[in-house]
């Protein structure tokens, strides 16, 4: 059992959890993730290790409630426990001093971007960060990102905060501006966003690393469910990734694969809502 030490609501659908999982936290590096199973009947899902505290034996996860498992987790509180946590999984992000880099986070992807941003700053890079969200509510970790960035750009689809538009707008400007001297781009967010970023940076010939959120089961290389096509070759996102060269990723294929279980997910979601509603009814 892995107890939840604390919980903080970052946005209406996004919560931050500090969880006691000393083994997963001990060796984790930026880019690593864990696989968790919340309850006995639950699914195994991957979540990025956003931070860890060696002395306390904790890891930090930031979770967006989008389906049954993430909603269930987000309904839990400090004092509750998660059944299984295994990690750190995946390859750590290659961190080097490129000179200038851009770190692009979209939605909850900003949470996954944060440890990488921190590590890139630590390696001596000049860091330009771009945080995107659909609306003001979904722009997360602004303060945390500012602490490790030389400059931060914020975009919202509806213009409710920062610049109206999408993350590629400020990125294009940065790439066009020779003064920024961007040598590498790191992008994490929804697949269409990472695809757009990769298409843009390809025009400029700037190396781009993206983190692929393939559907996983074991996370140890045993099922092949997380297979993605990179430069025409099959790779397993959990052991060969999760980060890959954005210019080599077949995004369209992954977008399709990630829709494999839509009907099931809808059904599970409806069932959870029903359960939650009925548990409210019995509550005094």
């Amino acid at each position: 059992m892995f107890p939840i030490i604390s919980k903080e609501i970052l946005a209406p659908t996004i919560s931050k959890f500090v969880i006691h999982a000393p083994l997963a936290g001990k060796k984790r590096k930026a880019g690593n993730f864990v696989i968790i199973r919340v309850i006995e009947n639950g699914e195994r899902i991957p979540l990025t290790i956003v931070d860890s505290n060696l002395a306390e034996g904790t890891i930090t996860l930031i979770v967006q409630a989008i389906g049954k498992t993430t909603k269930l987790l987000c309904s839990m509180n400090a004092g509750d426990s998660i059944l299984d946590v295994v990690g750190p999984l995946g390859n750590p992000t290659p961190i080097e001093n490129h000179g200038s880099v851009a770190c692009v986070g979209g939605g909850v992807g900003t949470a996954e971007m944060y440890p990488i941003t921190k590590a890139l700053k630590g390696a001596g890079n000049r860091v330009f960060s771009i945080i995107g969200g659909r609306s003001k509510d979904l722009v997360i970790l602004e303060e945390e990102m500012r602490a490790y960035s030389d400059e931060v750009f914020i975009t919202t689809d509806d213009g409710s905060y920062g610049q109206k538009g999408i993350v590629t707008d400020p990125l294009r400007q940065l790439l066009m501006n020779s003064q920024s001297g961007i040598k590498a781009v790191y992008a994490i967010g929804p697949l269409p966003m990472m695809k757009a970023v990769s298409n843009l940076t390809k025009e400029f010939g700037v190396h781009t690393l993206v983190s692929l959120n393939a559907i996983m089961v074991d996370g140890t290389g045993m099922c092949g469910g997380c297979r993605v096509t990179i430069d025409g070759k099959m790779k397993f996102a959990c052991v060969d990734g999760p980060e890959f060269d954005g210019h080599q990723v077949d995004f369209d294929e992954l977008i399709l694969r990630n829709r494999s279980y839509l009907d099931f997910e809808r059904m599970a979601n409806e069932q959870l809502l029903k359960e939650m509603a009925s548990s409210h009814e019995v509550a005094p």
Binding site: G221, M222, C223, G224, R227, M234, L256
Partner: peptide
């Protein structure tokens, strides 16, 4: 435990599984 795939076209379609998965 790491499954092999045949390497034929269409393997990445949803609905194609390794026996392990």
């Amino acid at each position: 435990g790491t499954p092999n795939f045949m390497g034929i076209p269409g393997e990445s379609l949803p609905g194609v599984y390794s026996a392990n998965e």
